[in-house]
Amino acid sequence: MKHCYSWLCMALLLGVSSSASAQRYSTRTGSVSFFSVSIMEDIEAKTDQAAALLDMQTAQVAFAIPIRTFEFKRTLMQEHFNENYMESDRFPKATFKGRVTNLNVDLLHKGGPQRVSVEGDLTLHGITRRVQTTGSLEVASGRLLVHTLFSVAPADYGIDVPLLVREHIAKIVTVRVSMACDPVSPVTLAQP
């Protein structure tokens, strides 16, 4: 309860300094998928339970993806993904926190997609690395649409692939993020 107070205060502060349009957007049902193509096997997985919070005033973004919610074509792949590669018991979430480096808020509220650069820390399998990528932001019917496509090398995050199946798993995995975020006010955010 104590921090509701602080939030109220912050809301007032924001109310003074910002325009009427929403500054923060969030979702819990963002889509994240990844795929890797190799000679032996194509691997593809999806989840619709990615959470995101984007602050358009400070240009900060945060994503959290529960690893166990990824679904694969093959049940066995899913099991191996959680058990052997991602070790989902130990590292249940992948997270990203960073900022949009070239955000133009005025342009955003005029409508139409805006190409943006994002940089920040990606934490995967317990290992955090600085990453940079591009994506697009668009405000359409009051919602913030977020799209990005980037590559991840499992080896960079301490995910080792045994020799025997090395041919099956690509060195580079492409990740696609697609989200529609609803506007939030800081006051409602503070109440869990």
Binding site: K2, H3, Y5, S6, L8, C9, M10, L13, S26, R28, A51, A52, L53, D55, T58, Q60, V61, A62, F63, A64, T95, K97, G98, R99, G120, D121, L189, P192
Partner: peptide, 29 residues
């Protein structure tokens, strides 16, 4: 706390603020 937040908000470096936004997100779920 609110007072400190105001002061902190003015002084905070971007790195600390980023920490906050991820924590906020985690608290939602």
């Amino acid at each position: 706390g609110a007072l400190l937040l105001l002061v902190g908000g003015l002084l905070a470096t971007p790195a600390q603020a980023q920490d906050d936004i991820l924590n906020e997100l985690e608290q939602q779920t």
